[in-house]
Design a protein around this nucleic acid. Structure first.
Length: 243
DNA sequence: CGTATATGGATAC
DNA sequence: TATCCCTATACGT
């Protein structure tokens, strides 16, 4: 909606300085894992990370006054968008991009992703594979839902140590992540369950999972185990993902 | 009106 | 490991 156009950028909360980017022309946007970057003329970069609560709101005709929770507002010729509740929202230069990307592992969605970096990191670690998948320096873009669902598809218990998972299974997990994340991009929402496994009467919002937030396994109906793993709920099927 | 919850992450010890 | 930050919504009283 904004590519190639001049964008008025405002900081209603005053929590970042919009002066360096306000009125510039947007060249392109890019995602790297869960991080999002917008590149403007003059090598100005805007970095956004939505975190748990972040959201964009789009206004195509009637534009309300910004609520007091609006962190950043973009106004262009055809649309206005508001950013609310992000973990990160900052204006900088290409070195900001470089410093963020430097602490990220490979992103399975990117064509240049180095799968072997992920595989060797997992297969050498004594940490649990469940924690490794949530570590953005191991793999960028995976969160609590994809962790639960990808490990389920490979039949791997989140509690197994990375080095016990090994090279072969780690590479298989990577492959599942590539497929799942691409399905999400294509459909605009998280899709983890294969079409042929989706129940005929699935919810209207399409949110079907194998184990995440479920009481019973979609495949075998075993009661799902849920426990706290480093501060996040972890879900697994005790039957399909033996320890 | 309170409390709990959520696809996340930085920082202090 | 603990604590804090960010926001909206659902649910109980």
């Amino acid at each position: 909606m904004f590519a190639g156009q001049r964008v008025a950028v405002a900081s209603p909360q005053g929590r970042f300085d919009a002066r360096d980017v306000d009125g510039r022309r947007l060249d392109r946007v890019e995602a790297y894992g869960k991080h999002w970057f917008a590149w403007f003329d003059g090598d100005v970069v805007v970095h956004v990370h939505l975190g748990l609560f972040g959201k964009w709101a789009t206004f195509l005709d009637v534009v309300p006054l910004p609520r007091d929770t609006v962190r950043m507002r973009w106004t262009g010729p055809s649309a206005t968008i508001d950013l609310v509740g992000p973990t990160a929202c900052a204006v900088g230069n290409p070195s900001l991009y470089e410093s963020v990307v430097a602490r990220l592992g490979p992103d399975p969605l990117r064509p240049d992703a180095e799968r072997e970096r992920f595989v060797s990191r997992v297969s050498r670690s004594k940490q649990s594979v469940g924690q490794l998948l949530m570590d953005q320096s191991v793999v960028a873009g995976v969160g609590n839902v994809y962790r639960a669902e990808a490990l389920f598809v490979r039949g791997v218990s989140p509690e197994r140590a990375g080095r016990d998972v090994g090279d072969i299974e780690a590479a298989e997990i990577w492959k599942v992540l590539v497929t799942m994340l691409r399905a999400g991009v294509k459909s605009g929402q998280i899709v983890t369950v294969a079409r042929k496994e989706r129940p005929p009467l699935s919810p209207a919002d399409g949110k079907i999972n194998y184990v995440y937030k479920r009481d019973r396994c979609l495949r075998c109906a075993s009661p799902i185990r849920r426990w706290d793993m480093a501060g996040r709920w972890c879900y697994a099927c005790p039957t399909c993902q033996p320890r």
